[in-house]
C-alpha cells in the first residue's frame, strides 16, 4: 500500500521530471484525495518557480571588455611573479650546489687533480674526444625523441628560467673551480719538468 511517505519520494521524482507514467497517475490520484500532499506539491512547484523568476540584473555594458582586460593583466602579473620566483629559486639552488661542490672539491682536491689530469690526457687524443662528442650528441637526440615535442616544449616554457638560471650560475662556479684547478696542475707539471 502506498502512503503519504511514499508519495514524498514520488513528489521529488515528479519535480525531477523522471516519474514513470504509473507513478505520475498514482500521485495525481493521491493528490485528489490528500489535501496535505497536494498543497505541499503545489507549494514546492511555486517556490521553485519563484526561484527561477527571481529578477537578476544584467551585467553592465562594459562587463566583457573590463573582464577581458583584467584577466589578461592578471595573467601577465602571475607570469611575472612566477618568473621572479623561479629565477630566485634557481639562483638559490645554484649557490647551494656550488657550495656543496666547492666543499667536496676542497676535501678531495688531490684526488680530483689526479682524475682531471688523467681525463685531460685521454681527451688530448682527438679521436677519443670526437667519438665521445658524437656519442653524447646521439644520446641527446634519442632523449629528445623519447620526450617528444610537447614535453620538450612544456619543459622549455615552464621551467626554462629555472634551468637556465641554475645552469648559468653552476657553469660559472664549476668553470672557475676547474680552471683554477687545471691551471695549478699544469703549472705544477711544468715545474716538475723544469
Amino acid at each position: 500500500m502506498t502512503g503519504c511517505k511514499d508519495f514524498q519520494i514520488i513528489m521529488q521524482t515528479m519535480l525531477d521530471g523522471t516519474a514513470a507514467e504509473k507513478e505520475r497517475a498514482d500521485f495525481e490520484g493521491h493528490m485528489t484525495l490528500c489535501r496535505d500532499c497536494a498543497m505541499e506539491f503545489k507549494a514546492l512547484q511555486l517556490s521553485l518557480d519563484l526561484l527561477v523568476a527571481m529578477p537578476v540584473s544584467e551585467p553592465s555594458p562594459g562587463f566583457t571588455s573590463d573582464t577581458v582586460k583584467l584577466a589578461f593583466k592578471a595573467k601577465k602579473d602571475l607570469m611575472r611573479r612566477q618568473r621572479i620566483l623561479s629565477w630566485g629559486l634557481s639562483g638559490l639552488a645554484a649557490i647551494i650546489s656550488a657550495l656543496i661542490i666547492a666543499g667536496w672539491h676542497m676535501v678531495f682536491q688531490p684526488a680530483i687533480r689526479m682524475a682531471l689530469l688523467s681525463i685531460l690526457k685521454i681527451l688530448s687524443e682527438w679521436k677519443v674526444l670526437s667519438t665521445l662528442l658524437v656519442k653524447v650528441l646521439f644520446s641527446l637526440v634519442k632523449v629528445l625523441a623519447v620526450l617528444g615535442d610537447a614535453t620538450f616544449k612544456a619543459v622549455w616554457e615552464g621551467y626554462s628560467p629555472i634551468c637556465l638560471g641554475y645552469m648559468i650560475v653552476l657553469i660559472i662556479v664549476i668553470s672557475f673551480i676547474l680552471i683554477t684547478d687545471v691551471r695549478s696542475s699544469v703549472f705544477s707539471l711544468k715545474g716538475g719538468k723544469a
Partner: peptide
Amino acid sequence: TGYCHRMIGAGSEDSAQEIFIKFYL
C-alpha cells in the same frame, strides 16, 4: 551573474568577473 546573485546576493557582477579571471588563469 545569475548564479552568483542567487548564491551570494549583492556583488554578483564583481564575483562573476573574478570567476572569469580565475577561469582564464
